[in-house]
Write a protein that binds this DNA or RNA. Sequence first.
DNA 1: GCATTATATTACGAATACATAATATAATAA
DNA 2: TTATTATATTATGTATTCGTAATATAATGC
Lengths: 99, 99
Amino acid sequence: MDKKQLPTVEKCEFVAEVLKVLSHPQRLLILCQLTDEAKSVGDLEKLSGASQSAVSQFLGKMKAQGLVKASKQNQFTYYDIADPDIKKLIQALYTIYCL
Amino acid sequence: MDKKQLPTVEKCEFVAEVLKVLSHPQRLLILCQLTDEAKSVGDLEKLSGASQSAVSQFLGKMKAQGLVKASKQNQFTYYDIADPDIKKLIQALYTIYCL
DNA sequence: GCATTATATTACGAATACATAATATAATAA
DNA sequence: TTATTATATTATGTATTCGTAATATAATGC
């Protein structure tokens, strides 16, 4: 994704795609939790209140989009933020809405 | 909306609602354009490439949500950002994705 | 008045997203 | 080997969103 430009239709298409992922309460909570440290699917299930299936599906899709990365350790899969821009975005949201 | 807290489910529900509005290419472009200065529906129609009906509907809904405000001058309706948090958010997106 | 321009509203089919249930797989424990 | 735990996958009905067409309203210009 090239930067240094005014918002164009193409840029907005890309960013809107990212925002669509964040525009869901439980997905947003999951991503917020992951900015601290990697967490297992089970951890995120408890923290978000979403079902096992939903959490796994959310993470699978976000991984496919390159937003998070997975590392399997024994029977657990730990997820972590993969995209630094997402981390910045979550931090910006925190600054605006939580400080 | 009270602030100063870690992300909670309720906070995420609120923020996700806001992000849902931004998670659409043309709505995002419209909001980006409005951070500079108020613009008419027709201006936004041209800038976003969305249909007259769609632009009017987008603006109507965003107004109902308190994100933008309208001021009618003669036959034109000028829209402007109403929520300072949205302005901050758009600026953060600009910093992350356009600089 | 009539035509034109600007905006808003309503309606509706098509596409998408959601939540949930059911099932599968893989690892560990007993 | 059987049971249990952790995660992934698939399926599916429902709800929501989107885009567009049609129509309405309101102001301006002729």
